[in-house]
Simulated scan of single mutants.
Amino acid sequence: MAKFQGQKIWGAAALAGAMLVTAGCTTGADKPDVVTSPPSDASAHLVDARGADRGRVDIYRTSSGLRLEVVARGFAPGQYGMHVHSVGQCAGPDFASAGGHWNPTSKQHGRDNPQGAHHGDLPNLVIDSGEIGRATVNLVGTRLDGDGALIDADGAAFVIHAGPDDYRSDPAGNSGARVACGVITRG
């Protein structure tokens, strides 16, 4: 009987050792806290007038249009207008080179404007404490390429303004100066 109990102990120890060796062979993809995202179809690196990093916008094609995922850094708490602009240029210090809002359907500005809203209108970016803001925006019926698409012959840019968009004033929602800009590029 004593010999049998000893074999049980050694067998259990061998099994535990094998489990430890196997556990040490996991990869980063096996860990639940590692999140991987598919590559974006387009993106924009946001900078301020001094060229400092202010965040990123990733754009993904969806079955209904485009999804924009915004991460903005270095902003004080508050609300900021954000828009897609019609020209793929971001020359500082005022980013006027980005042109007006992207408006392929010739609408007026603002979701609360009875004559609006155009495709470049987006909700305000809300920055809570911590100086980082995140937003996900779905542009239903919008294409990345082709006739009337986001990226046309002169490109497009993503702009964050100094103040909140009032959602009705044409042409820019009374959202103030352009404080961050990024040229939208494919992949």
Rank of each mutant, 00 (worst) to 15 (best):
G81F: 04
S37V: 12
D166Y: 00
V140F: 02
V35Q: 11
R186M: 05
V47D: 01
W102A: 05
H101E: 12
D33V: 08
V137G: 07
V84S: 07
A44Q: 06
P38V: 08
L150V: 07
A156K: 04
R111Y: 07
D147L: 04
G6D: 15
Y167N: 07
L46G: 10
L122W: 03
T26Q: 12
H85D: 03
P38R: 12
A172C: 08
S37D: 10
A91I: 06
V87P: 00
V70L: 10
S169K: 01
V84F: 03
D53V: 04
S63M: 04
G24T: 07
S169W: 01
D154N: 13
V183E: 11
A98Y: 01
T22R: 12
T105M: 04
R186G: 12
D33N: 13
F95G: 00
S175R: 04
A29C: 10
V179M: 09
D53E: 10
Q79A: 09
D165H: 02
N138Q: 11
R54P: 07
P77E: 02
D41T: 08
S106P: 00
G148W: 03
N138R: 10
F158Q: 04
I9H: 14
E69G: 00
N138L: 12
P39E: 14
G28C: 08
G92P: 12
Y80G: 03
P38T: 09
A172D: 14
S86N: 10
T62A: 05
G133F: 07
N124P: 08
I160R: 06
R54W: 02
C90P: 00
V34A: 12
D170N: 15
G133A: 08
A12H: 08
V70G: 00
R134Q: 13
P164Q: 11
D154P: 00
S63G: 02
G163L: 08
D154E: 13
